[in-house]
Amino acid sequence: MRQTRRDDGMKQTFVTLSEFRYQLRRFLRFSEEAAHAQGVTKLQYLLLLHIKGFRGREWATVGELAERLQAAPNSVAALVSRCEAAGLVRRWRSNADHRQVEVHLRARGERCLRQLAALHQAELGSLAAVFAVFRTAGAREV
Rank of each mutant, 00 (worst) to 15 (best):
T16H: 03
H98M: 00
V80K: 04
R2Y: 09
D8S: 05
R82I: 02
L88Y: 07
R99P: 01
T4Q: 02
F14T: 02
Q100N: 14
R108Q: 08
R108G: 05
T136H: 14
F131R: 09
A60R: 04
V133N: 12
R6D: 12
E141C: 07
S81H: 02
L28R: 09
L79M: 02
T136I: 13
F30G: 03
R26V: 11
R111K: 10
E123S: 02
S94P: 12
R25E: 08
F14N: 00
V133P: 07
K52I: 00
H50Y: 15
V103D: 06
R29D: 14
F54Q: 08
F131E: 06
E110T: 11
R114K: 07
A37I: 00
A107N: 01
Q44M: 08
R68G: 05
S31N: 06
A77T: 04
Q38N: 14
V76P: 03
A34H: 08
L88A: 06
Q115F: 01
V40M: 03
V130F: 08
L43S: 05
E32I: 10
L49R: 15
L113R: 01
L124T: 04
Y45C: 00
G39R: 02
R57S: 13
T16W: 06
R106S: 04
V103L: 05
A122V: 13
Q38H: 08
L43G: 04
G138D: 14
Q115G: 12
R135E: 15
F20R: 03
R93K: 11
R57T: 15
L69E: 11
R91M: 07
A139G: 15
D7N: 00
T4V: 02
S126A: 09
R6G: 10
G87N: 02
K52C: 10
T41L: 06
T16V: 10
A137V: 13
E33Q: 11
V80H: 02
T4R: 00
T61R: 07
C112N: 02
L65T: 12
H104C: 09
Q100P: 05
K52L: 08
F134H: 15
R108M: 02
S18A: 11
H50I: 01
R55S: 11
F131H: 08
A78P: 03
K11M: 09
M10P: 00
R55H: 13
E33N: 13
R114D: 13
A128F: 13
T61N: 05
Q100Y: 12
Q115C: 10
L88D: 06
C83W: 04
P73Y: 10
S81A: 01
R108Y: 01
L17V: 05
D97F: 04
S31M: 06
F14E: 08
L124Y: 10
E33G: 00
P73E: 12
E64Q: 14
L48Q: 08
D8K: 11
R55P: 12
D8I: 09
R26H: 06
T16N: 04
P73G: 07
Q70W: 14
A139E: 15
L79E: 01
E67Q: 15
A139K: 11
V101M: 12
L88T: 03
G9K: 07
K11T: 10
A71V: 03
L124K: 09
A96K: 11
V62H: 02
C83R: 01
G53W: 12
R93D: 00
Q121T: 10
E84V: 04
T4Y: 03
R99H: 04
T136D: 14
Q115E: 15
